[in-house]
Design a protein around this nucleic acid. Sequence first.
DNA 1: TCTTGAAGCTATAGCTACTAGAGACCTTAG
DNA 2: CTAAGGTCTCTAGTAGCTATAGCTTCAAGA
Lengths: 144, 144
Amino acid sequence: MLTIGKLGEAAGVKVPTIRYYEQIGLLPEPDRSAGNQRLYGQSALDRLAFIRHARELGFPLDAIRDLLSLSDEPDQSCAAADVIAKKQLTTVKARIVRLTALKAELERMITQCAQGTVADCRVIEVLSDHSHCAQDHRTSGAAE
Amino acid sequence: MLTIGKLGEAAGVKVPTIRYYEQIGLLPEPDRSAGNQRLYGQSALDRLAFIRHARELGFPLDAIRDLLSLSDEPDQSCAAADVIAKKQLTTVKARIVRLTALKAELERMITQCAQGTVADCRVIEVLSDHSHCAQDHRTSGAAE
DNA sequence: TCTTGAAGCTATAGCTACTAGAGACCTTAG
DNA sequence: CTAAGGTCTCTAGTAGCTATAGCTTCAAGA
Ligand SMILES: [Zn+2]
Ligand SMILES: [Zn+2]
Ligand SMILES: [Zn+2]
Ligand SMILES: [Zn+2]
């Protein structure tokens, strides 16, 4: 049996985060010691490692919640899981597209600046007016 | 003089967002009409457009605050503004690198899935264990 | 056995950048 | 003059944690 500190160490998750996951129902309430401290077994470690890895891959907690309940029913079709993963891939791709456009604009404004006064600064100038931009980088749905 | 609604329309910013910017001191408190409604002039519109454009380029509000106060002193050197822009570029580049790694892993797990049951689902399997991943996509500082 | 320090407990507040609602008030067109 | 729509303040909620305060429990050394 693991204390919360050991569990966090084993899974690479901070202790307050574990308590937070429990609070929002992502981890089940564990047994407690006589002194009211949480005690975890292997299944909690597996579940937490799953959550952590999915978070590292950018899945939101809601999606992880769905993936976890799917993985609790091994005989079901995995179509739903694949849909979630594909949706996440779409999100990631959209972000890359957007960030790549931002990168280009930032590079442009930085290289164009002649390092003079603020009055002549290309960075300030471009920020003041989008028509100085080469691309249309404006937001379209996906959170930055 | 513009009401808050007209200002928002002109700058492409929602009304509650304008009030929020005022609340956190990013926009100055405007004059009010006899009936206590906010009234804005051209300078508020310029400032708000600047903020909006910088947000679209991913700058955090703190950085925008600094950029705004720099742009209020046109005779100063623009070095500080360029530093902020370069820092933002670094952030954007780091995010692209990370998201590109995530994209590769997501694509891998999706294409490897044979569309069977959850027990055999490659998506679930990979999420359960990072050693199935080809790359080290783990977080290293920058917020996803 | 006593003690001390680390680790655990709950509860609350804070972070970013907004967004949504409630309930009241102002403005303006017809 | 009325009705509709814009605006007012205030509060709370979103995601995913992180930090603090003030307390209790546990494990190891003297
Ligand atoms: Zn410059
Ligand atoms: Zn632009
Ligand atoms: Zn599958
Ligand atoms: Zn991995």
